[in-house]
């Protein structure tokens, strides 16, 4: 669980699914927001841990049980790259 200071920092967001992307250097990644909205995005392979189903994100801050993160790309379903996610889905 991330600390409450030292932001922004890099962290890992738990994903529900990871599969091949449209290009060989990317994955298609699915996860959920803090409001339980599903989203998906294409992310460069260096930003994805396929085995552990994790996506590298930049954590801007965490308050209570929610973190504000920057996704590596605009996500389908939420149509933006800054979203809130549940802190339980974040690891550092």
């Amino acid at each position: 669980m991330p600390s409450t200071n030292g932001f922004p920092s890099k962290g890992w967001l738990k994903c529900s699914d990871i599969s091949e992307g449209m290009f060989p250097n990317e994955y298609a990644v699915e996860s959920i927001t803090a409001d339980n909205a599903e989203f998906s995005l294409f992310a460069h392979k260096t930003l994805v841990n396929e085995k552990e189903k994790l996506l590298k994100v930049t954590i801007l801050d965490c308050r209570d049980d929610v973190c504000l993160v920057i996704l590596p790309n605009e996500a389908y379903g939420v149509f933006k790259n800054m979203i809130t996610v549940k802190i339980e889905n974040i690891s550092q």
């Binding site: 927001t33 409001d35 989203f39 801050d61 929610v66 973190c67 504000l68």
Partner: peptide, 17 residues
């Protein structure tokens, strides 16, 4: 850049964005 989660709560649906 805005960095408080509260500023972005409820803005993660197309309607909220």
């Amino acid at each position: 850049i805005a960095n408080s989660p509260s500023q972005f709560q409820g803005q993660t649906t197309p309607e909220g964005s």
